[in-house]
Amino acid sequence: MIKLTVNDQPYTVDVEPTMPLLWVIRDVLHLTGTKYGCGMAQCGACTVHLNGEAVRSCVTPVKRAENQKVTTIEGLSTDFSHPLQQAWQEEDVPQCGYCQSGQLMSAAVLLRENPNPTDQDIDDAMSGNICRCGTYPRIRKAIHRAAAMQKTGGAQ
């Protein structure tokens, strides 16, 4: 039995300790906002926050998250109030949308650690998240927009 806290909810799961956190989140807890894309930390679709860091849950053994704090896209905000989510909508970012949970979770760490990111900072933070639809230019704009929103007092 492994105890986890996901989006501030406590869970106890009966899985082997090496099982990737991704499959615990998706197939055991049925929180499906976190996506499977490659299973080898290449694409970032499975990105969640583990104690605030943007870990790739497809290669993170669930044991590493034991008694730790996990946040998924469902917990980024409960009311769509995160400036990145607002900016994503304003800039019409998603296309197929499958990678966007991971993109947002990565961007959230960038914005927390660097409230005023440059294009280079965005490259340095976001190049681990693949988008096959090519929404990168809009992701870039949305991150800048969210940064600006934060400065003027957050999302409306």
Binding site: T32, G33, E74, F80, L84
Partner: peptide
């Protein structure tokens, strides 16, 4: 015109085939 699916695709709510349970 802004996409009608942008919100559901930015909060994890959008259901893809993979998400069926």
């Amino acid at each position: 015109t802004k996409r009608l699916d942008a919100k559901a695709k930015s909060n994890g709510a959008a259901q893809f085939g993979m998400d069926v349970h």
